[in-house]
């Protein structure tokens, strides 16, 4: 994607809108993803992440605005773009009556690969998904996590230049998640561009160079994970845990001890540069939480701040 030494973005959307009937799922967003980058979409349920992903995957025409993927217009060159990208949808859609191997081979053929190519590729990808020992098992018999791994592996069958992963690790156990992160990291090193949606903040922090937080069809913040944390949260967070329902009564008592206080159903979160110091002051004021914890700010806190999800007014 380099022309005259100037790298042009692999995906660029301007004032992108997606409407379903009267309902606006995506309300004019601007995105730009560069080659080799890992880009994330973060946001609560219904934020419009999947709708955006489907537009980029060329299976959902935009209602308004402009979109270019691999320098082409999805409305015109959908099949040509799809030939060069990999898609792992939010919902698995494997052929459950075919075996693991057959699923990979059939899918590879759809991308115009030869029989020999797909045979070889299937072996490689089963290795990738750690499903080699289940090669000839019907997908029906796999566990949920195994199906997910196979769906992810399948999205790599055409050696995509751009990989779209819609909540890839939902349903995976921690070990499988870490393994996948490692694999995605390696793909990225090989120059594959990644676009990921996730609800897991640690995943976004681990994988994404840059991300946008979406809410209600709009982008509410954009930046690298660390930039977002320093911009929207404090360095440290003091968590005070109370018996459910008792936390609210203590809110007034901790006033002024932190830059900001979030009230969750069973906890107070105090955003401050120095958690330990804040804890001492809290104790001095006679507040006795069931337990307390000082931790670093994460994207979780950014998310809470920006979307107000789980926030009690």
């Amino acid at each position: 994607m380099t022309e005259g030494g100037v790298s042009q973005p692999l995906v660029s959307g301007k004032a992108l809108v997606k409407r379903f009937g009267d309902f606006e799922a995506v309300r004019g967003i601007d995105i730009e993803v560069n080659q080799g980058e890992a880009f994330g979409f973060l946001g609560p349920n219904g934020a419009g992440k999947s709708s955006t992903m489907r537009m980029i995957a060329c299976v959902s025409p935009r209602s308004d605005g402009d979109l270019r993927v691999l320098g082409m217009d999805p409305d015109i060159d959908g099949p040509r773009i799809r030939a060069r990208i990999g898609v792992c949808p939010q919902q698995d859609n494997l052929d459950t009556e075919l075996t693991v191997r057959e699923n990979l081979q059939v899918y590879g053929r759809f991308f115009g690969l030869s029989r020999a190519q797909v045979r070889e590729k299937a072996v490689e990808l089963m290795e990738f998904a750690q499903l080699s020992d289940r090669a000839n098992a019907e997908v029906e018999s796999l566990s949920g996590g195994m199906k997910r791994r196979l769906t992810i592996a399948r999205s790599l069958v055409n050696d995509p230049e751009l990989l779209l992963l819609d909540e890839p690790t939902t349903g995976l156990d921690p070990q499988a998640r870490h393994l996948l992160w490692d694999r995605l990291f390696r793909l990225k090193q090989r120059g594959v561009t990644l676009i990921i949606t996730t609800h897991y903040m640690d995943e976004a922090e681990q994988l994404c160079d840059r991300l946008v937080v979406m809410d209600g069809g709009r982008i509410v913040a954009e930046g690298s994970p660390s930039a977002l944390i320093s911009r929207y949260s404090s360095r440290e967070v003091l968590e005070l845990r109370f018996a459910p329902g008792e936390q609210a009564g203590h809110e007034a008592k901790v006033e002024g001890l932190a830059e900001r206080v979030e009230v969750l159903p069973d906890r107070l979160l105090l955003y401050t540069a120095n958690g330990e110091a804040a804890l001492e002051q809290v104790t001095a004021r006679g507040v006795r939480p069931v337990s307390s914890l000082v931790r670093r700010s994460t994207l979780e806190d950014v998310f809470l701040r920006l979307t107000g999800r789980t926030l009690v007014d």
Binding site: Q35, R80, I85, F110, F111, L113, D159, R190, G191
Partner: peptide, 18 residues
């Protein structure tokens, strides 16, 4: 450093072959 991305192996076939 710029990693040169290999071209994907996927391609579009004609209507009947697809």
């Amino acid at each position: 450093s710029t990693v040169v991305q290999q071209r994907s192996t996927g391609r579009v076939l004609g209507l009947w072959r697809t």
